[in-house]
Design a binder for these strands. Sequence first.
DNA 1: CGTAGCTTTGAGTGTTATCAACTCTCGTGG
DNA 2: CCACGAGAGTTGATAACACTCAAAGCTACG
Lengths: 253, 253
Amino acid sequence: MQKREAAAVINISSIKAACKDCTLQELCLPFGLNEIDITALGKAIKRRRTLKKGEMLYRFGDPLRALYAIRSGALKTTGLIEDGRAQVTGFYLAGELIGIDAINSDRHPCSAEALESSEVCEIPYPALEDLATKIPGLQHQLLRIMSREIVRDEEMLMMLGRMSAEERLASCLVSFSRRLARLGGAPDEFKLSMSRQDLGDYLGLALETVSRLLSRFQDDGLINVHGRQIVLHDLNRLRAMAAGALRENSARA
Amino acid sequence: MQKREAAAVINISSIKAACKDCTLQELCLPFGLNEIDITALGKAIKRRRTLKKGEMLYRFGDPLRALYAIRSGALKTTGLIEDGRAQVTGFYLAGELIGIDAINSDRHPCSAEALESSEVCEIPYPALEDLATKIPGLQHQLLRIMSREIVRDEEMLMMLGRMSAEERLASCLVSFSRRLARLGGAPDEFKLSMSRQDLGDYLGLALETVSRLLSRFQDDGLINVHGRQIVLHDLNRLRAMAAGALRENSARA
DNA sequence: CGTAGCTTTGAGTGTTATCAACTCTCGTGG
DNA sequence: CCACGAGAGTTGATAACACTCAAAGCTACG
């Protein structure tokens, strides 16, 4: 499954990362730091690492060695339940930080897998914590990123706890649109990097339900689906749907 | 609704907190710090505050001024969806830190309400962040607590996304048992401080479903319910149920 | 060009929500 | 001290939304 490409890839694999030249600065850990501090952070980062589709960045139970800033590509994190059931706890895109849920126990409480060819910067955790005491702005940014992750998870909780299948999927599409636009892509056209199964495991739905809903959204003229290629035709209506407008009881009280 | 008690309470309300004499040290922010650092932390804490049942600690949208360490009692945090729907994003007990999801945007993304008479220590956030750069152990502990919150939310995600109503409730009871035992209470007997509605809004279930399940658990000899008073008779079976054993497909692959 | 995995679509079922009525509990005031 | 009322909790009937099982259609990669 992974033989041919390997050779071509190794060279790139351990190139030294340099935050100061990275186009994702504004979205990533260096945000808000001055040039000197950014250089210091860049030095702490051990290397870049490339992952092929399906490759694991870390697995459930692995000791925490580093956090990873995603430079390109997309990853998913999945938690385990003993039986076949999996819950995808998050999708992570370029500019986002992955692995912070391991800080609590020094072990990764979930597994991270590349959904497509991806590149990550490996930030050794002890060095990062150390650096954060020296650079208040870095500490601040780290705390903010962690807090943002909590907010994101809480939004997911509302989604899973209180929203219908339709609202969940609309919400998910809107979220991808926003995050991809931030990276400079078109907000209304993108390619999903995950399967229907992954989407279902994320949204708490059966893969068939995801598929059916995508078809229905298309019939309703909201979107266009061709396999994993998505075009959003009516972002506003999708947003309204995600917000739970459009249900009978809407404006009560 | 809140008139008589007020007078008696005011005196206590602004007593200076002193971490170094607090019995919850081990569970709280000071964990792992030496005595000098604990004293420094204690000085940063502005005051204690008492809340009566139903009183709000902060509301959705309020600016972040402080984090709160819970000394006694219990709180819930709820996120909003425009229409009547509420999602309870967490229950917080003594020794736990509440408000950290506000760090990202400097505003509270949810509301916090006391479920019973409670006492909290108010930790001004800018002072805490400042202190954390000076005391590496404190920074470490703060990061750990935030990471733990993420793990907890991710566990909730699995619960809401993949578990049946029965599994969710069992899981919830087991969690209360564990957390209350850690505070020195009996692990198999406690009083719920929240209504069936709150429990439902937390577990993503209708209140009727919660009620029905509690009755069923009782019929099955798992627990004893009398209003909010709960006795757990078979913690092991509850744990198995929460883990998803007991379903037909259990051991596949 | 064939095969394996992914996706779509259909039919039937089940878990859980909703609506509704009744009961219990506890605090308040007569 | 008891009666009352309001909120909380229980229980039942019904229905809907989403799951499961099943089969056929696509896509993409070797």
